[in-house]
Design a protein around this nucleic acid. Structure first.
Lengths: 219, 219
DNA sequence: GTCATCATGTAAGCCGTTACATGATTGC
DNA sequence: GCAATCATGTAACGGCTTACATGATGAC
Protein backbone atom coordinates (compact mmCIF):
# COMPACT_ATOMS: atom_id res chain seq x y z
CA UNK A 1 0.00 0.00 0.00
CA UNK A 2 2.79 2.37 0.80
CA UNK A 3 4.41 1.51 -2.53
CA UNK A 4 1.32 2.67 -4.33
CA UNK A 5 1.31 5.92 -2.40
CA UNK A 6 4.99 6.59 -3.03
CA UNK A 7 4.95 5.73 -6.71
CA UNK A 8 1.72 7.64 -7.24
CA UNK A 9 3.21 10.77 -5.74
CA UNK A 10 6.54 10.41 -7.52
CA UNK A 11 4.76 9.95 -10.83
CA UNK A 12 3.65 13.53 -10.56
CA UNK A 13 6.79 15.04 -9.17
CA UNK A 14 10.27 14.22 -7.91
CA UNK A 15 10.33 14.35 -4.13
CA UNK A 16 12.43 13.51 -1.12
CA UNK A 17 11.18 11.41 1.78
CA UNK A 18 10.29 14.17 4.17
CA UNK A 19 8.26 16.03 1.58
CA UNK A 20 6.68 12.76 0.49
CA UNK A 21 5.29 12.26 3.96
CA UNK A 22 3.81 15.74 3.96
CA UNK A 23 2.11 15.15 0.63
CA UNK A 24 0.77 11.89 1.92
CA UNK A 25 -0.82 13.72 4.80
CA UNK A 26 -2.43 16.19 2.42
CA UNK A 27 -4.11 13.42 0.51
CA UNK A 28 -7.75 12.83 1.45
CA UNK A 29 -8.17 9.77 3.60
CA UNK A 30 -6.23 8.59 6.58
CA UNK A 31 -2.80 8.48 5.02
CA UNK A 32 -1.28 10.98 7.38
CA UNK A 33 -0.45 8.10 9.68
CA UNK A 34 2.35 6.66 7.59
CA UNK A 35 5.54 7.16 9.51
CA UNK A 36 9.17 7.64 8.59
CA UNK A 37 9.87 4.24 10.01
CA UNK A 38 7.98 2.70 7.15
CA UNK A 39 8.50 5.39 4.53
CA UNK A 40 12.29 5.36 4.38
CA UNK A 41 12.71 1.60 4.33
CA UNK A 42 10.03 1.48 1.65
CA UNK A 43 11.95 4.02 -0.42
CA UNK A 44 15.15 2.05 0.02
CA UNK A 45 13.36 -1.13 -1.01
CA UNK A 46 11.86 0.54 -4.06
CA UNK A 47 15.26 1.89 -5.01
CA UNK A 48 16.84 -1.55 -4.70
CA UNK A 49 14.01 -2.90 -6.85
CA UNK A 50 14.75 -0.24 -9.46
CA UNK A 51 11.31 1.35 -9.21
CA UNK A 52 12.69 4.70 -8.09
CA UNK A 53 16.10 6.28 -8.27
CA UNK A 54 17.81 9.27 -6.80
CA UNK A 55 17.72 12.23 -9.13
CA UNK A 56 19.69 15.39 -9.31
CA UNK A 57 17.78 18.44 -10.41
CA UNK A 58 14.39 16.85 -10.21
CA UNK A 59 11.73 17.23 -12.85
CA UNK A 60 9.04 19.10 -10.94
CA UNK A 61 5.37 19.60 -11.59
CA UNK A 62 4.96 18.36 -15.13
CA UNK A 63 1.15 18.58 -15.33
CA UNK A 64 1.18 17.70 -19.03
CA UNK A 65 -2.56 17.78 -19.70
CA UNK A 66 -3.06 21.31 -18.52
CA UNK A 67 -0.81 23.38 -20.73
CA UNK A 68 -0.07 26.04 -18.26
CA UNK A 69 -2.60 28.64 -17.59
CA UNK A 70 0.29 30.58 -16.97
CA UNK A 71 3.02 31.10 -14.87
CA UNK A 72 2.26 28.74 -12.06
CA UNK A 73 3.87 25.44 -12.95
CA UNK A 74 6.55 27.02 -15.03
CA UNK A 75 7.46 29.39 -12.36
CA UNK A 76 7.65 26.66 -9.80
CA UNK A 77 9.98 24.65 -11.98
CA UNK A 78 12.17 27.63 -12.59
CA UNK A 79 12.06 28.45 -8.95
CA UNK A 80 13.20 24.98 -7.94
CA UNK A 81 15.97 25.10 -10.49
CA UNK A 82 17.09 28.42 -9.17
CA UNK A 83 17.42 26.96 -5.68
CA UNK A 84 20.29 24.78 -6.75
CA UNK A 85 22.24 27.73 -7.95
CA UNK A 86 21.95 29.47 -4.65
CA UNK A 87 20.47 32.36 -6.53
CA UNK A 88 17.59 32.99 -4.19
CA UNK A 89 17.17 33.72 -0.59
CA UNK A 90 17.07 30.62 1.49
CA UNK A 91 13.79 31.23 3.28
CA UNK A 92 11.89 28.95 0.95
CA UNK A 93 14.08 25.89 1.12
CA UNK A 94 15.30 25.36 4.60
CA UNK A 95 17.62 22.54 5.49
CA UNK A 96 17.92 21.10 2.02
CA UNK A 97 21.45 19.82 2.35
CA UNK A 98 21.20 16.09 2.87
CA UNK A 99 18.03 15.56 0.93
CA UNK A 100 17.74 12.57 -1.31
CA UNK A 101 15.32 13.44 -4.06
CA UNK A 102 13.72 10.45 -5.73
CA UNK A 103 12.18 10.07 -9.13
CA UNK A 104 10.16 7.26 -10.62
CA UNK A 105 11.75 4.99 -13.24
CA UNK A 106 10.15 3.16 -16.14
CA UNK A 107 9.97 -0.10 -14.18
CA UNK A 108 8.48 1.96 -11.39
CA UNK A 109 5.79 3.28 -13.69
CA UNK A 110 4.97 -0.25 -14.74
CA UNK A 111 4.79 -1.26 -11.10
CA UNK A 112 2.50 1.69 -10.41
CA UNK A 113 0.22 0.72 -13.27
CA UNK A 114 0.03 -2.83 -11.87
CA UNK A 115 -0.74 -1.63 -8.35
CA UNK A 116 -3.44 0.68 -9.67
CA UNK A 117 -5.44 -2.09 -11.33
CA UNK A 118 -4.76 -4.77 -8.72
CA UNK A 119 -7.78 -5.80 -6.63
CA UNK A 120 -7.49 -3.58 -3.57
CA UNK A 121 -6.67 -5.29 -0.29
CA UNK A 122 -8.90 -2.89 1.63
CA UNK A 123 -10.94 0.25 1.26
CA UNK A 124 -8.03 2.55 1.96
CA UNK A 125 -6.06 0.95 -0.82
CA UNK A 126 -8.96 1.56 -3.18
CA UNK A 127 -8.98 5.18 -2.08
CA UNK A 128 -5.33 5.38 -3.07
CA UNK A 129 -6.10 3.79 -6.41
CA UNK A 130 -8.73 6.45 -7.02
CA UNK A 131 -6.35 9.17 -5.90
CA UNK A 132 -3.89 8.17 -8.63
CA UNK A 133 -6.13 6.55 -11.22
CA UNK A 134 -5.59 9.55 -13.50
CA UNK A 135 -2.35 7.83 -14.47
CA UNK A 136 -4.25 4.91 -15.99
CA UNK A 137 -5.55 4.53 -19.50
CA UNK A 138 -9.25 5.43 -19.48
CA UNK A 139 -10.31 1.90 -20.39
CA UNK A 140 -8.24 0.37 -17.61
CA UNK A 141 -9.70 2.90 -15.24
CA UNK A 142 -13.26 2.02 -16.14
CA UNK A 143 -12.47 -1.69 -15.93
CA UNK A 144 -10.99 -1.22 -12.49
CA UNK A 145 -14.06 0.69 -11.31
CA UNK A 146 -16.32 -2.01 -12.69
CA UNK A 147 -14.41 -4.65 -10.75
CA UNK A 148 -14.81 -2.60 -7.63
CA UNK A 149 -18.47 -2.21 -8.39
CA UNK A 150 -18.93 -5.96 -8.71
CA UNK A 151 -17.09 -6.53 -5.47
CA UNK A 152 -19.26 -4.04 -3.58
CA UNK A 153 -22.44 -5.46 -5.09
CA UNK A 154 -21.47 -8.93 -3.99
CA UNK A 155 -20.69 -7.74 -0.50
CA UNK A 156 -24.08 -6.07 -0.39
CA UNK A 157 -25.96 -9.23 -1.32
CA UNK A 158 -23.89 -11.23 1.16
CA UNK A 159 -24.79 -8.67 3.74
CA UNK A 160 -28.46 -8.88 2.89
CA UNK A 161 -28.31 -12.65 3.19
CA UNK A 162 -26.80 -12.41 6.64
CA UNK A 163 -29.44 -9.98 7.81
CA UNK A 164 -31.92 -12.72 8.68
CA UNK A 165 -29.44 -14.75 10.67
CA UNK A 166 -30.62 -16.34 13.91
CA UNK A 167 -30.91 -13.80 16.68
CA UNK A 168 -30.18 -10.95 14.34
CA UNK A 169 -32.83 -8.62 15.63
CA UNK A 170 -32.29 -8.82 19.35
CA UNK A 171 -29.93 -5.94 19.95
CA UNK A 172 -30.76 -2.46 18.65
CA UNK A 173 -27.10 -1.44 18.43
CA UNK A 174 -26.13 -4.51 16.44
CA UNK A 175 -29.11 -3.88 14.23
CA UNK A 176 -28.12 -0.28 13.73
CA UNK A 177 -24.58 -1.35 12.93
CA UNK A 178 -25.87 -3.75 10.34
CA UNK A 179 -28.03 -1.09 8.74
CA UNK A 180 -25.17 1.36 8.75
CA UNK A 181 -22.96 -1.16 6.98
CA UNK A 182 -25.60 -1.52 4.30
CA UNK A 183 -25.85 2.25 3.93
CA UNK A 184 -22.09 2.53 3.58
CA UNK A 185 -22.00 -0.16 0.92
CA UNK A 186 -24.79 1.56 -0.99
CA UNK A 187 -23.02 4.91 -0.73
CA UNK A 188 -19.79 3.38 -1.97
CA UNK A 189 -21.63 1.81 -4.85
CA UNK A 190 -23.08 5.16 -5.84
CA UNK A 191 -19.63 6.67 -5.59
CA UNK A 192 -18.14 4.10 -7.93
CA UNK A 193 -20.93 4.88 -10.35
CA UNK A 194 -19.99 8.51 -10.14
CA UNK A 195 -16.37 7.64 -10.85
CA UNK A 196 -17.41 5.61 -13.87
CA UNK A 197 -19.50 8.52 -15.05
CA UNK A 198 -16.51 10.85 -14.78
CA UNK A 199 -14.43 8.38 -16.76
CA UNK A 200 -16.99 8.06 -19.50
CA UNK A 201 -17.26 11.81 -19.69
CA UNK A 202 -13.53 12.10 -20.15
CA UNK A 203 -13.63 9.33 -22.72
CA UNK A 204 -16.26 11.19 -24.66
CA UNK A 205 -14.26 14.39 -24.47
CA UNK A 206 -11.23 12.58 -25.78
CA UNK A 207 -13.15 11.33 -28.80
CA UNK A 208 -13.83 14.83 -29.97
CA UNK A 209 -10.55 16.65 -29.70
CA UNK A 210 -11.61 20.22 -29.13
CA UNK A 211 -13.14 20.66 -32.58
CA UNK A 212 -14.95 23.82 -31.72
CA UNK A 213 -14.87 25.18 -35.23
CA UNK A 214 -16.80 22.32 -36.84
CA UNK A 215 -20.48 22.29 -36.14
CA UNK A 216 -20.75 23.49 -32.64
CA UNK A 217 -21.89 20.02 -31.55
CA UNK A 218 -21.89 19.71 -27.81
CA UNK A 219 -21.86 16.06 -26.63
CA UNK B 1 -8.92 -5.51 18.55
CA UNK B 2 -9.17 -9.25 18.55
CA UNK B 3 -9.33 -9.18 22.34
CA UNK B 4 -12.42 -7.01 22.17
CA UNK B 5 -14.06 -9.37 19.71
CA UNK B 6 -13.27 -12.46 21.78
CA UNK B 7 -14.31 -11.01 25.10
CA UNK B 8 -17.44 -9.50 23.61
CA UNK B 9 -18.52 -12.83 22.21
CA UNK B 10 -17.60 -14.77 25.34
CA UNK B 11 -19.54 -12.32 27.47
CA UNK B 12 -22.68 -13.62 25.83
CA UNK B 13 -21.83 -17.27 25.71
CA UNK B 14 -19.10 -19.81 26.45
CA UNK B 15 -17.46 -20.86 23.21
CA UNK B 16 -14.49 -22.73 21.83
CA UNK B 17 -12.08 -21.25 19.31
CA UNK B 18 -13.50 -22.76 16.18
CA UNK B 19 -17.01 -21.62 16.99
CA UNK B 20 -15.68 -18.22 18.01
CA UNK B 21 -14.29 -17.74 14.54
CA UNK B 22 -17.64 -18.61 13.00
CA UNK B 23 -19.46 -16.11 15.21
CA UNK B 24 -16.90 -13.51 14.30
CA UNK B 25 -17.71 -14.07 10.65
CA UNK B 26 -21.41 -13.64 11.33
CA UNK B 27 -20.84 -10.24 12.86
CA UNK B 28 -21.53 -7.31 10.54
CA UNK B 29 -18.36 -5.74 9.27
CA UNK B 30 -15.25 -7.31 7.91
CA UNK B 31 -14.38 -9.52 10.84
CA UNK B 32 -14.58 -12.74 8.89
CA UNK B 33 -10.94 -12.30 8.03
CA UNK B 34 -9.55 -13.10 11.47
CA UNK B 35 -7.67 -16.33 11.16
CA UNK B 36 -6.90 -19.19 13.49
CA UNK B 37 -3.32 -18.13 13.46
CA UNK B 38 -4.25 -15.02 15.40
CA UNK B 39 -7.30 -16.35 17.22
CA UNK B 40 -5.71 -19.24 19.11
CA UNK B 41 -2.64 -17.33 20.26
CA UNK B 42 -4.95 -14.54 21.36
CA UNK B 43 -7.04 -16.99 23.38
CA UNK B 44 -3.93 -18.44 24.98
CA UNK B 45 -2.71 -14.96 25.82
CA UNK B 46 -6.06 -13.98 27.32
CA UNK B 47 -6.06 -17.17 29.36
CA UNK B 48 -2.57 -16.46 30.67
CA UNK B 49 -3.75 -12.97 31.55
CA UNK B 50 -6.70 -14.44 33.44
CA UNK B 51 -9.31 -12.78 31.25
CA UNK B 52 -10.77 -16.05 30.07
CA UNK B 53 -10.58 -19.59 31.41
CA UNK B 54 -11.46 -23.01 30.20
CA UNK B 55 -14.85 -24.12 31.38
CA UNK B 56 -16.44 -27.51 31.64
CA UNK B 57 -20.13 -27.67 30.82
CA UNK B 58 -20.23 -24.18 29.47
CA UNK B 59 -22.94 -21.70 30.35
CA UNK B 60 -24.60 -21.35 26.98
CA UNK B 61 -26.98 -18.68 25.80
CA UNK B 62 -27.69 -17.01 29.08
CA UNK B 63 -30.09 -14.28 27.89
CA UNK B 64 -30.90 -13.56 31.52
CA UNK B 65 -33.77 -11.20 30.96
CA UNK B 66 -35.83 -13.98 29.46
CA UNK B 67 -36.28 -16.69 32.08
CA UNK B 68 -36.13 -19.54 29.57
CA UNK B 69 -37.53 -22.12 31.96
CA UNK B 70 -34.22 -22.11 33.77
CA UNK B 71 -33.69 -25.63 32.65
CA UNK B 72 -32.04 -24.62 29.42
CA UNK B 73 -28.40 -24.65 30.30
CA UNK B 74 -28.84 -27.79 32.28
CA UNK B 75 -30.67 -29.36 29.41
CA UNK B 76 -27.94 -28.38 27.00
CA UNK B 77 -25.35 -29.98 29.22
CA UNK B 78 -27.41 -33.16 29.35
CA UNK B 79 -27.96 -32.90 25.64
CA UNK B 80 -24.25 -32.61 24.99
CA UNK B 81 -23.70 -35.67 27.12
CA UNK B 82 -26.42 -37.49 25.22
CA UNK B 83 -24.69 -36.88 21.90
CA UNK B 84 -22.23 -39.61 22.65
CA UNK B 85 -25.05 -42.10 22.60
CA UNK B 86 -25.93 -41.20 19.05
CA UNK B 87 -29.38 -40.30 20.22
CA UNK B 88 -29.63 -36.91 18.57
CA UNK B 89 -29.00 -35.46 15.19
CA UNK B 90 -25.40 -34.52 14.76
CA UNK B 91 -25.83 -31.03 13.35
CA UNK B 92 -25.44 -29.36 16.69
CA UNK B 93 -22.25 -30.89 18.06
CA UNK B 94 -20.13 -32.63 15.50
CA UNK B 95 -16.58 -33.57 16.30
CA UNK B 96 -16.56 -32.20 19.78
CA UNK B 97 -13.84 -34.32 21.32
CA UNK B 98 -10.84 -32.03 21.74
CA UNK B 99 -12.67 -28.79 22.15
CA UNK B 100 -11.52 -26.26 24.66
CA UNK B 101 -14.52 -24.21 25.70
CA UNK B 102 -13.68 -20.81 27.11
CA UNK B 103 -15.64 -18.57 29.41
CA UNK B 104 -15.01 -14.98 30.45
CA UNK B 105 -13.77 -14.22 33.97
CA UNK B 106 -14.40 -11.19 36.16
CA UNK B 107 -11.05 -9.63 35.21
CA UNK B 108 -12.00 -10.40 31.64
CA UNK B 109 -15.25 -8.49 32.04
CA UNK B 110 -13.35 -5.55 33.45
CA UNK B 111 -10.98 -5.72 30.50
CA UNK B 112 -13.94 -5.82 28.11
CA UNK B 113 -15.47 -2.79 29.76
CA UNK B 114 -12.18 -0.94 29.36
CA UNK B 115 -11.84 -1.92 25.72
CA UNK B 116 -15.40 -0.83 25.03
CA UNK B 117 -14.87 2.75 26.20
CA UNK B 118 -11.31 3.13 24.95
CA UNK B 119 -10.84 5.55 22.03
CA UNK B 120 -11.02 3.27 19.01
CA UNK B 121 -7.83 2.82 17.02
CA UNK B 122 -9.78 2.67 13.76
CA UNK B 123 -13.28 2.51 12.35
CA UNK B 124 -13.46 -1.25 12.53
CA UNK B 125 -12.66 -1.15 16.21
CA UNK B 126 -15.47 1.33 16.71
CA UNK B 127 -17.80 -1.03 14.87
CA UNK B 128 -16.82 -3.75 17.35
CA UNK B 129 -17.46 -1.39 20.22
CA UNK B 130 -20.92 -0.73 18.88
CA UNK B 131 -21.49 -4.45 18.36
CA UNK B 132 -20.92 -5.09 22.05
CA UNK B 133 -21.83 -1.76 23.62
CA UNK B 134 -24.98 -3.34 25.06
CA UNK B 135 -22.71 -4.60 27.83
CA UNK B 136 -21.97 -1.07 28.97
CA UNK B 137 -23.86 1.06 31.44
CA UNK B 138 -26.13 3.41 29.48
CA UNK B 139 -24.27 6.50 30.65
CA UNK B 140 -20.91 5.08 29.64
CA UNK B 141 -22.40 4.13 26.31
CA UNK B 142 -23.66 7.64 25.65
CA UNK B 143 -20.35 9.12 26.77
CA UNK B 144 -18.48 6.85 24.40
CA UNK B 145 -20.76 7.82 21.52
CA UNK B 146 -20.27 11.48 22.31
CA UNK B 147 -16.52 11.05 22.21
CA UNK B 148 -16.82 9.40 18.85
CA UNK B 149 -19.04 12.22 17.71
CA UNK B 150 -16.49 14.82 18.73
CA UNK B 151 -13.77 12.90 16.93
CA UNK B 152 -15.77 12.68 13.72
CA UNK B 153 -16.74 16.34 13.90
CA UNK B 154 -13.12 17.33 14.27
CA UNK B 155 -12.11 15.15 11.35
CA UNK B 156 -14.81 16.80 9.29
CA UNK B 157 -13.59 20.31 10.01
CA UNK B 158 -10.01 19.25 9.34
CA UNK B 159 -11.19 17.82 6.09
CA UNK B 160 -13.01 21.02 5.19
CA UNK B 161 -9.87 23.00 5.96
CA UNK B 162 -7.83 20.82 3.62
CA UNK B 163 -10.32 21.20 0.82
CA UNK B 164 -8.87 24.46 -0.38
CA UNK B 165 -5.30 23.24 -0.42
CA UNK B 166 -3.09 24.26 -3.33
CA UNK B 167 -3.91 22.32 -6.45
CA UNK B 168 -6.90 20.70 -4.87
CA UNK B 169 -9.25 21.09 -7.77
CA UNK B 170 -7.17 19.84 -10.64
CA UNK B 171 -8.09 16.16 -10.78
CA UNK B 172 -11.76 15.14 -10.92
CA UNK B 173 -11.03 11.75 -9.30
CA UNK B 174 -9.17 13.27 -6.39
CA UNK B 175 -11.96 15.78 -6.05
CA UNK B 176 -14.55 13.03 -6.05
CA UNK B 177 -12.54 11.11 -3.47
CA UNK B 178 -12.45 14.17 -1.28
CA UNK B 179 -16.18 14.70 -1.57
CA UNK B 180 -16.82 11.04 -0.86
CA UNK B 181 -14.75 11.25 2.28
CA UNK B 182 -16.84 14.17 3.45
CA UNK B 183 -20.04 12.25 2.69
CA UNK B 184 -18.80 9.26 4.66
CA UNK B 185 -17.89 11.44 7.63
CA UNK B 186 -21.31 13.07 7.57
CA UNK B 187 -23.03 9.69 7.32
CA UNK B 188 -21.01 8.38 10.24
CA UNK B 189 -21.91 11.44 12.24
CA UNK B 190 -25.59 10.86 11.58
CA UNK B 191 -25.17 7.25 12.58
CA UNK B 192 -23.61 8.16 15.91
CA UNK B 193 -26.53 10.48 16.49
CA UNK B 194 -28.85 7.58 15.82
CA UNK B 195 -26.93 5.45 18.31
CA UNK B 196 -27.19 8.18 20.91
CA UNK B 197 -30.90 8.41 20.24
CA UNK B 198 -31.28 4.68 20.79
CA UNK B 199 -29.38 4.98 24.05
CA UNK B 200 -31.52 7.83 25.29
CA UNK B 201 -34.62 5.90 24.37
CA UNK B 202 -33.45 2.95 26.41
CA UNK B 203 -32.52 5.28 29.21
CA UNK B 204 -36.04 6.60 29.19
CA UNK B 205 -37.43 3.06 29.20
CA UNK B 206 -35.34 2.31 32.25
CA UNK B 207 -38.36 0.97 34.11
CA UNK B 208 -37.11 -2.51 33.50
CA UNK B 209 -33.39 -3.17 33.09
CA UNK B 210 -33.16 -4.68 29.68
CA UNK B 211 -29.48 -5.25 29.20
CA UNK B 212 -27.05 -6.66 31.69
CA UNK B 213 -24.23 -4.32 32.49
CA UNK B 214 -20.78 -5.18 33.54
CA UNK B 215 -18.38 -3.82 36.06
CA UNK B 216 -21.11 -2.92 38.50
CA UNK B 217 -23.33 -4.64 40.97
CA UNK B 218 -26.31 -6.41 39.48
CA UNK B 219 -28.97 -6.69 42.15
C1' DG C 1 -11.41 -47.05 5.13
C1' DT C 2 -11.50 -42.94 3.39
C1' DC C 3 -12.88 -38.31 3.07
C1' DA C 4 -14.89 -34.01 4.67
C1' DT C 5 -15.35 -31.48 8.61
C1' DC C 6 -14.23 -30.13 13.15
C1' DA C 7 -10.64 -28.57 16.10
C1' DT C 8 -6.18 -26.83 17.87
C1' DG C 9 -2.11 -25.27 17.44
C1' DT C 10 3.00 -23.59 15.50
C1' DA C 11 6.22 -21.12 12.23
C1' DA C 12 7.53 -17.81 9.03
C1' DG C 13 6.87 -13.63 7.38
C1' DC C 14 4.73 -9.07 6.02
C1' DC C 15 3.57 -4.65 7.08
C1' DG C 16 3.42 -1.17 9.83
C1' DT C 17 4.21 1.40 14.26
C1' DT C 18 6.81 3.86 18.06
C1' DA C 19 11.03 5.14 19.86
C1' DC C 20 15.57 6.09 19.28
C1' DA C 21 19.91 8.08 17.09
C1' DT C 22 21.98 11.39 14.17
C1' DG C 23 23.04 15.43 11.96
C1' DA C 24 22.39 19.81 8.83
C1' DT C 25 20.34 24.47 8.35
C1' DT C 26 18.28 28.54 9.76
C1' DG C 27 16.12 32.11 12.74
C1' DC C 28 16.84 34.68 16.61
C1' DG D 1 25.21 29.76 20.57
C1' DC D 2 20.78 27.65 20.81
C1' DA D 3 16.43 25.99 19.68
C1' DA D 4 13.31 24.65 16.04
C1' DT D 5 12.77 22.54 11.99
C1' DC D 6 14.26 19.74 8.26
C1' DA D 7 15.97 15.33 7.00
C1' DT D 8 17.34 10.43 7.12
C1' DG D 9 17.75 6.49 8.97
C1' DT D 10 17.79 2.05 12.55
C1' DA D 11 15.82 -1.07 16.23
C1' DA D 12 12.42 -3.24 18.69
C1' DC D 13 8.20 -4.70 18.56
C1' DG D 14 3.14 -5.84 17.64
C1' DG D 15 -0.55 -7.71 15.22
C1' DC D 16 -2.23 -10.30 11.76
C1' DT D 17 -1.82 -13.51 7.68
C1' DT D 18 -0.61 -17.71 5.21
C1' DA D 19 1.04 -22.08 5.36
C1' DC D 20 2.04 -26.00 7.76
C1' DA D 21 1.39 -29.94 11.17
C1' DT D 22 -1.65 -32.73 13.83
C1' DG D 23 -5.35 -35.35 15.04
C1' DA D 24 -10.38 -36.65 16.30
C1' DT D 25 -15.11 -37.60 14.57
C1' DG D 26 -18.81 -38.83 11.65
C1' DA D 27 -20.83 -39.86 7.04
C1' DC D 28 -20.92 -43.03 3.48
Amino acid sequence: MIDLAILGLLKGEDLHGYELKKRLGELPGAFAGVSFGSLYPALARLERAGAVREVEGGRSRPTPSVPMTGALSGEIAAFRARIRLGHDRAEVTPGRRNRKVYGITQPGEARLAALLVEPPADDRTFALQVAFCRHLHPEERVAMFERRRADLAERLTTHAAGADAPGAGTDPYLQSLREHDARVLTTDLAWVDELVAISRLELADADQPVATSIGGSTP
